[in-house]
């Protein structure tokens, strides 16, 4: 039954990826086709030894860890709030998804406008009340990255909430009833019964969000362009710049493949960690 999916993905994803990965072994700038030649791993060593890329990697890791943690926490709170099955909660669940329907590049534009210290409905008053730096939350190297994290959480915490909610709603009733009979308090019930049983959903949120947050581009590109300075310069901005603006597709692909490896490692760590947790709870 898995065959159709595997065939489809092989044709329409694996094949282009392999071609793209092949580019990364070449010196290949689409603007200078006469200079194309095989260079082996040169693009990779160049990327790994570039201090700007290393800085972007650090920013990206920090951004990913913070966003995913906040989205998981907020998503869990929302899912628990919306757990009870009634009309109000169902409508609320749908309305909560509205941020996901907005194209990320427009999300970036919206928050740049709202947070602007001269014109922004939020930014003007924050700066007026000295709650934000004079150049605004996005114009200061100390606050821009945190602000972009908040924007990402705004758009994607609802996704985490929906996945966790679907997980909550498929928990078997008998174990919850048993807990109720045991007279376990709400906190104990959450920690000892619900969360362990929710591990698959939590895992799903973690893994999906890590793969996506690590590749964040649009919101940052539209809101700060990676600035101020290089404080919000995520790796994906470098990859797009090299690959799709300078058309150095060899170097751009190499950065992207390195990103994929990083994502795979992060996902692997999460899988191992949660497996360990799962085993501990299963033996209990």
């Amino acid at each position: 039954m898995a065959a159709p999916a595997i065939i489809h993905v092989t044709i329409f994803a694996v094949y282009p990826i392999l071609r793209g990965a092949g580019f990364s072994l070449f010196r290949m700038n689409l603007m200078q086709p006469w200079l194309h030649r095989f260079v082996g791993l040169r693009n990779y060593t160049d990327a790994l030894s570039d201090p700007a890329i290393r800085h972007s990697l650090a920013v990206t890791l920090m951004f990913t860890a913070s966003c995913v943690a906040m989205e998981l926490a907020l998503g869990l709170c929302l899912a628990l709030l919306l757990w009870t099955d009634n009309r109000f909660n169902r409508v609320a669940t749908i309305l909560m998804l509205v941020p996901i329907t907005v194209t990320p590049i427009v999300v970036g534009l919206i928050f740049r406008a709202l947070l602007d210290p001269s014109f922004g409905l939020i930014g003007y008053w924050l700066t007026w009340a000295h709650l934000a730096p004079p150049q605004g939350l996005l114009g200061d190297t100390h606050t821009a990255l945190m602000t972009m994290m908040a924007v990402d959480v705004w758009e994607w915490a609802p996704l985490a909430a929906l996945i966790l909610l679907a997980g909550l709603k498929s928990l078997p009733a008998d174990s919850l009833d048993a807990a109720a009979i045991d007279g376990a308090g709400p906190v104990a019930k959450l920690g000892r019964i619900i969360l362990p049983m929710m591990l698959p959903s939590i895992f799903l949120v973690l893994v999906l969000r890590v793969t996506d947050v690590f590749r964040t581009y649009d919101i940052v590109f539209a809101a700060t362009g990676g600035g101020p300075g290089d404080s919000t310069n995520l790796l994906m901005l470098d990859a797009v710049k090299q690959g799709l603006q300078f058309f150095d597709i060899g170097y751009g692909s190499a950065i992207s493949i390195l990103m994929t490896l990083a994502i795979a490692i992060l996902a692997g760590v999460i899988i191992l960690a949660l497996r360990g947790l799962d085993r501990r709870y299963n033996t209990l």
């Binding site: 001269s118 014109f119 922004g120 930014g123 150049q135 700060t224 600035g227």
Partner: peptide, 20 residues
Amino acid sequence: PPGAVNWDWDGREASFRSGL
């Protein structure tokens, strides 16, 4: 004006049109 360090053409033009 405050915020100019993060403006591109849109914000810059608006700042002139709005009288800032």
